[in-house]
Amino acid sequence: MNFTLHIWRQENAKAKGHFETYKVSDISPECSFLEMLDILNEQLINDHIAHPVCFDNDCREGICGMCGLYINGRPHGNDDGITTCQLHMRKFHDGDEIWIEPWRAKAFPIIRDLVVDRSAFDKIIQSGGYVSVTTGGVPDANAIPVPKRFADMAMDAAECIGCGACVAACKNASAMLFVGAKVAHLAMLPQGQVEANERVKKMVCKMDELGFGSCTNTYACEAECPKQIKRQNIARLNREWIKQLFAGNHKPEE
């Protein structure tokens, strides 16, 4: 198979970027999208055409959340429930033009070419996306039964890989699905109850502060999530937020 690639090139965070056009040929349909880019890079180096295209990738089996390209108008390309590394060239037609762009969002500044800085996600989690237990001194694992239904729902939400496709797809660059998934995951479990109010407050404030947009219920995030995390998690986030609004705010005396 042969393809014409239009790839966003940008030297560094401050440089002005532009699209560059490359051609690749004799690509096997079994080849994954990132392997196709490997082949392109090999070609760029060998023929001294340009600096190889930089793109984030790591596990190449759809779980680490490192890869993320905006391909022909869709985050992770034209298939549902996959990451970019799971996209295979058999999904394209011979001779296709492929436009490859980085995630675009104020909160995800570009580092180089297709690589963006997603540390904003880490900062949201750091603000409260966990249960505050220190190591040791916890009850036995079976001390608190959790209804299977809740455990399963928590797991549905916990599958988020933090790739940022939700932000990339959202017209508002909103991180509500990402935050919603974490809040919903912990809200479903008894272990997460203790800090539920504080957690949602801190995470949402952090999210706003970092320059993510608000949710306008278009559900683009749900449509593009590689782990198919549901919009209900955003509703859950809203619910937790309302709960928090009405919860008494006890300020310890200084």
């Binding site: 694992a141 479990l189 272990q191």
Partner: peptide, 18 residues
């Protein structure tokens, strides 16, 4: 024990136990 306390959603059976 540690992981459950952290909110790791391990698989459970219908009794709610691991």
């Amino acid at each position: 024990d540690q992981c459950v306390a952290q909110g790791v959603p391990f698989a459970r059976d219908y009794s709610g136990l691991l």
